[in-house]
């Protein structure tokens, strides 16, 4: 690895291209943020200019009339509740599936893994009909349930991998100390697998924060829409009087901000979680 100190022209070109893409990615994010502070007419006249003053008017517009404020609350509520529930339901199952390698256990593991290959649109009509028949369309409960169901295959898959890495001696020691199976799981295993649980929570949080297909199908009243739906509605609302780009960029920043924050805070954990288990 250390041998290749010499720089061939091809390698220099490669490096240049990589840094160029990296710089462009960062520039795009910064540009979106700076533009969100500017007036729409000004944006079109000089797209790359800096904001003259930190105009927070766009944010006030987006948060209030644009509906992004109410939508942010819905998004937080849905992402948090469904993520906690999905992890809480998946963790015991994943633990048992990782520990017991019987034929039943293996086929259940396979059954969950098969769900990874199902595109969401297959479930759209059935879930809509089912939720409509029990009056859960356009409710937080309905969409939460859907997000929990959608999350199960991946969460179970991810956590099974994590639990498989927890040494068996822990339960043996707990059993010798007289702890019941449930107690050993809650007091010994879960704390050890905390990293996996946090990762599963994070990934599901990110997934439901950005989920659009089901949110747009199920949330119809303005006070319940999530952020992606608010963005779609905002664009549609402006169909006739020209798009207010400044406000739209502010709205997009509201969608982006938590993702940037999470990534800055726990980026390596997120990356690892989204790519883990694939290398095995």
């Amino acid at each position: 690895m250390t041998i290749s100190k010499k720089r061939s022209p091809l390698r220099v070109a490669g490096l240049a291209i990589v840094w160029l893409i990296v710089a462009a990615d960062i520039a795009l994010l910064i540009w979106i943020f700076l533009t969100s502070l500017r007036d729409t007419k000004d944006i079109f006249a000089r797209p790359f200019a800096l904001p003259t003053s930190a105009e927070l008017g766009n944010y006030a517009n987006a948060w209030g009339e644009g509906g992004f404020g109410a939508a942010a609350l819905s998004s937080v509520l849905l992402a948090v509740v469904s993520s906690i529930a999905a992890v809480a339901i998946s963790a015991p199952a994943a633990y048992m599936l990782a520990r017991r390698r019987t034929r039943t256990s293996n086929s259940i593991t396979m059954l969950f893994a098969m769900g990874l290959g199902v595109p969401g649109q297959v479930l759209l009509v059935p879930l809509f009909v089912a939720m409509a028949s029990v009056g859960l369309v356009d409710t937080y409960t309905g969409l939460n349930l859907i997000y929990i169901g959608l999350a199960l295959p991946f969460t179970v898959y991810l956590l099974t991998g994590f639990f498989a890495g927890v040494p068996l001696v822990l339960e043996e020691a707990a059993a010798i100390d007289g702890a019941s199976g449930v107690r050993a799981f809650v007091r010994v295993i879960l704390p050890v697998a905390r990293g996996g649980l946090i990762t599963a929570f994070l990934l599901h949080f990110i997934g439901s924060w950005n989920e659009t297909l089901f949110a747009i199908a199920f949330m119809q009243s303005d006070d319940k829409v999530t952020l992606p739906v608010a963005l779609v509605n905002f664009v549609k609302m402006q169909q006739f009087n020209g798009l207010d780009w400044g406000t739209m960029f502010a709205g997009m920043c509201i969608i982006l901000a938590p993702m940037v924050a999470l990534f800055a805070w726990m980026g390596s954990r997120i990356i690892q979680g989204m790519t883990v288990g694939i290398g095995k």
Binding site: I89, P92, M96, V122, L127, A130, L152
Partner: peptide, 27 residues
């Protein structure tokens, strides 16, 4: 662990069956 297998696995399996597998069949 064999005694606890179903109590641990059943909730996830039930939710998965109701909200994921059954809908595919219904589709």
């Amino acid at each position: 662990q064999s005694r606890l297998f179903w109590p641990f696995v059943a909730p996830a399996l039930l939710v998965y069956g109701l909200l994921f597998l059954a809908p595919i069949a219904y589709a």
